[in-house]
Design a protein around this nucleic acid. Structure first.
Lengths: 144, 144
DNA sequence: AATTTATTAGGAACAATTCTTATTACCGAA
DNA sequence: TTCGGTAATAAGAATTGTTCCTAATAAATT
């Protein structure tokens, strides 16, 4: 577990290495994603950052989040509703998705790690990219 | 492995059971998905069916494909490019995705079947929904 | 064949994302 | 510290994928 200060340093170093400018916008977007625990969408990140930089444009959030993904600072995946969602956890790509409300939660599936990704004729560099498990979350189950 | 004739019978029976009309459009969309082996998108299905029914609208393909999914005749998933793709194979949800060209291939991951989906506090009815493995397909590897 | 009712075509509407262009601001050099 | 070159940004237009709306059409039932 890293502190926010450590995260910021890591972020700034990654930018310098790549010759990217450390802009106000990038700093705030980075912080917003790191603080949010619920896999925010671009729209949600925008709403958060907008409170600190009212002039920021949605497009900037899109571009910034793209940049961060290329730097390996965040991971991106598609929720079943079709929107991109972002995560500072770039290792775990196993998600629980509620079939009712769409809520997404990270999980760690013990045993899956130990399983070797199968080799398939012709294909190379195979890497397990994402695992999605569907179910009913606590809140939705209680509603019934 | 089923013949197309068997598939058509299964399709027609499923429609009758649900009180759905067996329209020209539905028949052609069904055939198109079954013949295509490459997880066609709506746009691609439309292009194929359009050759047989030039007047068909894109919206009809969307609706039809929705209907088929509800009947359990096809499965739908999201490609990394964000578009829906369809598959007549409704059992296997393990896909290889080429990081270069986006090509998608079904695979069967032996061993994954035997793994029990983990139980997570609060959540219920958990079902493994999809597994995505990224890599480089043969064609793209040869290009390098 | 006529009637009923689901389905369709066509285009408008919508939502998420990307593109365009003039303006701004980061950062290295003076 | 100030300045200039250049990457990054704001704003909104454009694009893409999908869904909605309505009058017209065509399955299935009689």
């Amino acid at each position: 577990m890293q502190t926010m200060k450590e995260n910021m340093l890591q972020f700034e170093n990654a930018c310098r290495e790549q010759g990217l400018k450390i802009t106000h916008q990038r700093v705030e977007v980075f912080k917003a994603i790191h603080k949010a625990k619920d896999h925010p969408s671009v729209e949600e990140i925008y709403a958060i950052v907008n409170r600190r930089i009212p002039s920021i444009s949605l497009d900037t959030v899109y571009r910034t989040v793209d940049t961060f993904e290329k730097l390996g600072l965040v991971s991106r995946f598609q929720a079943p509703d079709g929107r991109f969602r972002f995560d500072t956890n770039i290792d775990i790509h196993q998600h629980l998705v509620c079939t009712k409300c769409g809520r997404i939660e990270d999980i760690h599936w013990d045993g899956l790690d130990r399983l070797k990704v199968p080799s398939v004729g012709g294909w190379s560099d195979l890497v397990l990219a994402s695992v999605e498990i569907k179910g009913l979350c606590e809140a939705c189950r209680k509603k019934n």
